[in-house]
Structure formats: C-alpha cells, structure tokens
Write a protein that binds this DNA or RNA. Structure first.
Length: 468
RNA sequence: GGCGCCAUAGCCAAGUGGCUAAGGCAGGAGCCUGCAAAGCUCUGAUCCCCGGUUCGAAUCCGGGUGGCGCCUCCA
C-alpha cells in the first residue's frame, strides 16, 4: 500500500517515495526545554507519532529523530531567575516532557539529540559555512548566515522577505548585512552556557542545531536529500525551516529534506494558544483531570493539518466515543486475539495512508464497533468472532495508539480499593433485593451508586459497573 | 503590506468534480429490560453569500463576508 502525504513545501498531496527503499528517515523539531509541555507540543508529537506508526505498519523501517533545544535565551533567563544551573533546568523539563508524552502513548524517538551535546557537529557545520563564504563574523564575535549566498532562499516558505518590513520587526544588529541573515553562533563570556571553540566562545543559534544534527545522524552525502521527511508545527515553516534548509544547502549542496509536514495549531476559544495571550495550558494539568489516552484520542480525532479548537465539551464527547471502544473490549475480555478482519485492517490502514486521515480512521473504527456489537448480540458464544474483534482492537491500538489498556480498569479509573469494595457490596445487596423482587430497594441502591458516580448495567453475565 | 489556512446538520468532524454528503456527541421513536443502563434499529444538513466554468460542483475559477495563522521566540 502506498503512503501519501501533504507536502507543505510543494503544497499538495504527493506519494511518499523514500530515498532508500523501505526506509523512512524522519526529523521532528522538538521542544525548547525551558517550561512544561503544553497542548500544542502534544499535538505536534501526536501528529508525527501517527506518521511513525503508520509507516511502520506499512512495513517501512523508520528512524525518527526529535531534538531537544537545551540552550537558548529563555533557558538562560530561567537560570538567572531561579539561580539554577542550565542542566538542572533542562534535565528537569526534558524528563517532564518525556513523562507527558508517555502518558499520551507517544512512541519514544529513535534518536533524541540535544543541542548542548551536539556542539561538535554544530561547530563543524559552522566551519563548513565559514569556509564556503556562506557565513560571516561580526566584530562582537557573533557569526551570521549570509542569506544572499543562497539563491534558493525563500523557496521553502515562499516568503519574499520584504527588507523594509523586516527591518521594522527584527532587532537591528550592527554589522548584519541583511535583515534576513540570522545568527549561527552567539558570542558570550565565560559561563556555563558558553562553549569554547576555535571561532570563539559562544553558544549556537536556534536554527543551526537542526541542520547539524540531521547532518550528524543521517548524513547528507551523495543523495539529493539528507532525510525523507522533516516535521514540525506550522509556525516553524518560516523562518526556522527556511533557514535550516538554506544552511544545509550552502554547507552540503544537498536539500535537507525530501518532504515537509507541518501540523496545525491548538487554539483555545478560536485563538492561538500562547503564553502572551494567557490562554495556554500545560499538558500536565490536563493529565491531572483526564486520562492521557483520552487526550490523545481527542487530539487525533481531528486531522493534523487543521486547526484544533480545544474545549472541554468536545473532550467529553470524545470520552463517550472512546468508552464505546473499551466497552466492546470488555465484551471480549481476555480473549486471545488471532487475525484482525482483513477488510477492516485494510480500510484503517488506507485511511491513515492518505495523509494520516485519523478522522476517517475513527469513523471506520466506529463502524467496526457497531458491527461487532451487533454480531455479539446475535452470537454471544462465537469464539472465533471474539478473537477477531480482539485482534481488531489490538490493531487499532498499534496503529492509532488507543484502546490498548485494560478494559475493566479503564472504567474504574480513580476508584480506590475501599470504594471498589463498597460498590461491589452494594451491587451484591441489590442482586439480593432483585432476587426477592424487592425492586424498590434495588432501585434505591442503584440511585445511591449513581450518586457515587457509578453506573451499573445488568447483563447475562451479572451486573457490571462503570465509574462515570 | 507580503505569504497562507479555514467556513459542511444544535455541537465536533471527514469528504475536495459524478452512486442516496462518512463518523461521533446531543435530541426524538422503537427493540431489549421488573424499571434502567449498556447494546442494537430507525430518524436530521444540498455544504457562508454572489457570479462563472462544466452534461454535472460542497469540491474548480473570480468576487464578497466572517474567522484564524505566519512574517519577532513559539508546536
């Protein structure tokens, strides 16, 4: 099965034809680790987690790299504010990021380079640019990339940078040849975040690390491209990706990536989530209230390229939808899965192969759930059917990363042992009352359970309960 | 000012030239049930407006209206 993706540089959907047959090299622009991850980080990570899972399922050998920018102005500011060391801050937030992403069931990247651990690669890269005359040094020691040396500058984002407009926005730096030029190396004095290299003490600029890391980990030797797919948030297209591409072009003569994918934004009340608007919120706070898998499901129920308007009402409607998958899973509880239904598997994979159409994929999942329930109603003892359903759910969990948890526990989240015992005792009492046809008592117990946030359902297999 | 995205039922959301416009949530009717819940069945939109292209458009083109984003760190 072929994979199609929307290439945000070509601005159209194209067939994925990897540089090396059956292999896919992916680089995702990761977070700057100066604070906790917010929903936008989650959306980006989820989008390209789906990319990785889909390509793997299609049989590609996938190598995904995601960097951590662990040296930057904001981190330095945080150091000054908190009195903590660079490493203390960045290690703390890297771990937090990884924990949050794990809660969302995001597969770990195969390579996780850090800027501070890539200084040699960055240094080499800057040296290459200096040698080729694509970079110049200012009197203060800063090194800038000379965008005029790259005739293709602007072809990634199609941004024609208006010199005057740019001047008004970008801070003027003395000695800079063009406002489009950007810092590769920022000179600094002796300190924890300064690195002593042959062209002077300093620290890397933001754009250079990605180019250097890609060069280091994937190589950009004789191919036309360094990697297959370069991914990131829509806001990175310009200037970040434009600059990365330009540097790599100048330094290696090779295009940095064959394909580009950009995910849309998470908005709150129709506006971009951002700190300056005061409407952003951290993933860790959402995770205190909602299961990570629910947040995952909610965020990937909308196509990755669209804007996503986050709100609690929709999140709760997503929960009801996801609950249905787990209710089906409960019906085939502890049944060993065999082979998934061929047509179902194909349809699901086809949807995801069409530029990661996860919305369509979930529609197919819903149809499968519906059909499975219908058939189970008719043939509750059909073991082969149960094995197939179980395998279908397993396939969903591999491809989409939802539905992989224990179905009983899913409906008992946040219920303590004592509570559980109390619930089960009440259910027993109710069963006794029912036996005695004392429905008044039975209904009273049901109301009592409902007040505890517990819903019950009588089945041929006894009374089941769920925490709502 | 430059570049770009979006507008589909009460809400969320696929579809981007041609069978009856996916799917979910909410609502209504029914089956099941002691009654419920869960599950199942049935039930809703001609696709922001105007014009054009076409045998045929939600889907392409032009013009509006409304919303959002990038151009400064940003997923």
């Amino acid at each position: 099965m072929d994979f199609y993706l929307f290439d945000s540089v070509k601005r159209k959907k194209v067939k994925f034809e990897p540089i090396k047959e059956n292999e896919a090299s992916i680089y995702v622009c990761g977070p700057t680790v100066y604070d906790d991850a917010h929903l936008g980080h989650a959306r980006s990570a989820l989008s390209f987690d789906l990319l990785k899972r889909t390509l793997k399922e299609l049989g590609f050998r996938v190598t995904l790299a995601k960097n951590f920018t662990d040296i930057d102005d904001k981190i330095i500011n945080k150091m000054k504010e908190s009195g903590k060391s660079l490493k203390e801050i960045t290690n703390f937030y890297i771990n937090r990021y990884l924990e949050d992403m794990e809660a969302l069931n995001i597969l770990r990247a195969d390579i996780e380079p850090k800027a501070t651990e890539s200084i040699d690669a960055i240094k080499e890269f800057i040296n290459k640019l200096l040698k080729k005359g694509c970079a110049y040094k200012l009197e203060n020691g800063d090194i800038y990339f000379d965008t005029s040396k790259d005739l293709k500058y602007g072809t990634i984002s199609k941004m024609v940078v208006d010199e005057e407009a740019t001047i008004s926005r970008v801070e003027e730096v003395e000695g800079k040849k063009s406002p489009k030029d950007f810092a590769l190396w920022k000179a600094c004095e002796e300190s924890e975040y300064c690195f002593d290299v042959e062209f002077g003490k300093g620290r890397p600029g933001w754009h250079i690390e990605c180019s250097a890391m890609i060069y280091k980990h994937f190589g950009c030797k004789s191919n036309d491209y360094c990697i297959d797919i370069h991914c990131g948030g829509a806001d990175l297209l310009f200037p970040h990706h434009e600059n990365e591409a330009s540097q790599t072009r100048c330094a290696t003569g090779v295009e940095i990536a064959k394909y580009w994918m950009h995910n849309g934004f998470v908005q709150i009340d129709g506006e971009k989530m951002s700190k300056s608007l005061g409407n952003s919120f951290f993933l860790k706070d959402a995770l205190k209230v909602y299961d990570g898998e629910l947040i995952r499901f909610y965020l990937i129920s909308v196509h990755y390229r669209n804007d996503f308007n986050f709100n609690e009402v929709d999140l709760l409607s997503s929960k009801k939808r996801l609950d249905k998958l787990y209710r089906l899973k409960k019906r085939v509880y502890q049944i060993t899965s065999k082979e998934p239904n061929k047509e179902f598997k194909k349809a699901l994979l086809e949807a995801m192969s069409d530029d990661l159409n996860s919305s369509k994929a979930f529609a197919i999942v819903d149809e499968m759930i519906n059909e499975a329930n219908e058939r189970l109603d008719k043939e509750p003892k059909n073991r082969a059917l149960k094995q197939e359903i179980s395998a279908n759910i397993e396939f969903i969990s591999n491809l989409l990363g939802v539905g992989g948890k224990d179905a009983i526990k899913w409906f008992q989240q946040g219920v303590s042992k004592e509570e559980k015992e109390k619930i089960e005792k009440l259910i027993q009492k109710r069963a006794q009352a029912k036996k005695e046809k004392n429905f008044e008592v039975a209904d009273k117990i049901r109301d009592e359970l409902k007040e505890m946030g517990v819903a019950i359902m009588d089945t041929s297999d006894g009374t089941k309960w769920e925490k709502i």
